[in-house]
Design a protein around this nucleic acid. Structure first.
Length: 579
RNA sequence: GGUCCCGUGGUGUAGCCUGGCCAAACACGCGGCCCUGUCAAGGCCGAGAACGCCGGUUCGAAUCCGGUCGGGACCGCCA
């Protein structure tokens, strides 16, 4: 059999007229006219019509795997099919051999409608046979190739870092692997090769990259899987502009070469605080306007109890004008309230037409309209809560409104940098903590007021965002030991904790560390955007469900007692952990 | 941990709000027959689900209620 070098079903064209071919593929469709049978034969490259007028007609069924020997010819005039890429030709079979048969598949391979997610994942190997999924696998492969070409052209070196490693300084829960040779000790799977890539800078690699698998044991989302892939990169002697320039050029190349799109450069930059204020998120979708306004000033001494209470407690009131929103039904508004509650908010208020009308003074209503830019036909939606919560709620409502009212300009690519960001943030207990990781380099000049206003200290950190997705984040790193010490001290990290967690890096930095920085764009999300899907499972060959199961292989699974014994592990859990 | 949506033959949907007309409809697929130019082929015939599971309400439940399992979206969490 020499099917490997055989022509592809999907590649035959009019120029192949007269060519004798041997084709290998799957029966995608069969049209039996009695005396003549048409078979659409599918391989990875597409489908071609095969004409069978044989004395001994084999029993062909959908998804049978066959070998066909025959001749390519132009279709008889009038029978061309413009819907098929190979529609100008057909293959007249002289011989057909069934290589393997197929049971009727659990769902149609050739169908516009997608089967249920659960069924797709149980039979992922068949799901991937669907042409739409095959395209995604190809796209992902292409993206990886473009990235490698781009990085290699710029003399970056791809270094593979270990999967069995040690807990890293980012904040997510680790996946642990027990060590057989070291009882009671565990490896951690990397959340990101953060410390290793910085160590590679000390090694003098200068320009490192890796298409790196990363693992985080946190809850899933439509754009989040427990294992995912990043283009991890780090460079020495760079400033922020170097990183921005490199990444913008990379994205331009990706968009151009993968889907033929031209994206605008340079990408605009947005202060993270402004992003939260105007869009209620740190990954705003700029394909629609809908800007959020702070209404606190307009409600300084309002009689409306809801707002007064929130403001007195240090919370905020944020509003959003919905263009033409006065036509919204009570039902639609109720659904928005449900969205707000689902996000943990108290609810949602609106003017005019809401319960608040009679509690707000008319000059307050005027001020609200003014601040949100609401016109006579517009409705203002309002969220009042602790700052973070109110922002989340009104940000989600902003998205929801854009979706429902079709305000999103499809086809646009609105890239931006979230930059600058800030070094510190407050944790749940009101304690100071790092916003990124403790090696993020602060703005030198801001450190003069760090004692008085720590949360205003800017950091050389940046996220790249496109159309509402965070595509990656990074920073310049601290290389000055005194600065590093200062940051640790501000974070209130005890010396022994620092030594335990970051000792290797800090010691390495005593042997001549170059100033350095980097970023890690997420490849899954890049492929999602390029592939036009909003679900990360569509760009991962074998993904997990929301509850982190592999429905095809049945993972996770119990293991033999002998395996546990060897590892010195006793399974004692009786119920699911709190998540 | 929380909010919300979904679960009907192999597949995709309808029915569920407003219980009985539903041992459940339609399309594709599947089995059989017819047809030499179709391409989502067509025509005729046929098989196939007691409606995720458990319990409750009711004279009566796919339809209402509670629980549970599974899938999904989101908040928390996670850069």
């Amino acid at each position: 059999m020499s099917g490997y070098s055989a022509p592809h079903c999907g590649s035959l064209r009019a120029s192949d007229d007269g060519r004798e071919v041997e084709l290998y593929g799957w029966v995608a469709r069969r049209r039996d006219m009695g005396g003549v049978v048409f078979v659409d034969l599918r391989d990875r490259w597409g489908k071609v019509q095969v004409v069978l007028k044989l004395a001994a007609m084999p029993e062909l069924r959908l998804e049978y795997v066959v070998r066909v020997r025959g001749t390519v010819r132009r279709r008889p005039a009038g029978s061309e099919n413009p819907k098929m890429e190979t529609g100008e030709v057909e293959v007249v079979a002289e011989e057909i051999e069934i290589l393997t048969r197929s049971e009727p598949p659990p769902f149609p391979i050739e169908d516009a409608e997608e089967p249920d997610e659960k069924t797709r994942l149980e039979y992922r190997y068949l799901d991937l046979r669907r042409p739409a999924m095959t395209r995604m696998l190809e796209l992902r492969s292409k993206v990886n190739r473009i990235i490698r070409d781009f990085m290699e052209e710029r003399e970056f070196v791809e270094v593979e870092t270990p999967i069995l490693t040690r807990s890293s300084p980012s904040g997510a829960r680790d996946f642990l692997v027990p060590s057989r040779l070291h009882p009671n000790e565990f490896y951690a799977l990397p959340q990101a090769p953060q410390m290793l890539k910085q160590l590679l800078m000390v090694s003098g690699v200068q320009r490192y990259y890796q298409i790196a698998r990363c693992f985080r044991d946190e809850n899933l989302r439509a754009d989040r899987q427990p294992e995912f892939t990043q283009l991890d990169l780090e460079m020495s002697f760079c400033d922020e502009e170097d990183v921005f320039g490199l990444v913008e050029a990379l994205f331009a190349r990706l968009w151009k070469d993968a889907i033929g799109a031209t994206i605008e450069m340079p990408f605009p930059r947005l202060d993270i605080k402004e992003s939260f204020l105007r869009y209620g998120t740190d990954k705003p979708d700029l394909r629609y306007e809908l800007e959020i306004a702070d209404l606190g000033d307009a409600l300084g001494d309002t009689r409306a109890e809801v707002f007064r209470r929130v403001l007195a407690a240090g919370g905020v009131v944020r509003g959003l004008a919905v263009p033409g929103g006065r036509d919204m039904s009570r039902r639609e508004l109720d659904e928005l309230v449900t969205v707000a509650r689902g996000a943990g908010g108290q609810g949602l208020a609106w003017v005019p037409g809401g319960a608040l009308d009679k509690h707000l003074a008319s000059d307050e209503i005027d001020a609200i309209k003014h601040l949100t830019g609401a016109g006579p036909d517009d409705l203002v939606l309002i969220a009042a809560d602790r700052r973070r919560k109110a922002e989340t709620v009104i940000g989600l409502i902003r998205q929801e409104i854009a979706r429902r009212r079709k305000l999103i300009r499809e086809g646009e690519w609105r890239f931006l940098w979230i930059n600058p960001t800030y070094l510190f943030e407050e944790d749940d207990q009101g304690h100071i903590t790092y916003a990124h990781h403790p090696f993020t380099r602060p703005f030198e000049e801001d450190m003069s007021f760090v004692e008085e206003r720590p949360y205003d200290v800017r950091a050389h950190a940046y996220d790249i965002v496109c159309n509402g997705y965070e595509l990656g984040g990074g920073s310049l790193r601290i290389y000055d030991p005194r600065m590093q010490e200062r940051v640790f001290q501000l974070l209130g990290m005890p010396l022994d904790v620092i030594r335990e967690r970051f000792g290797t890096l800090l010691e390495a930095f005593t042997y001549g560390v170059p100033p350095h920085g980097g970023i890690a764009p997420g490849i899954d999300r890049i492929v999602m955007m390029l592939g036009g899907t909003d679900n990360i499972r569509d760009v991962i060959a074998f993904p997990k469900t929301q509850s982190m199961s592999d429905l095809m292989l049945g993972a996770p699974s119990e293991v033999d007692q002998a395996q546990l014994d060897e590892l010195g592990i006793k399974a004692v859990a009786t119920k699911k952990p709190a998540s």
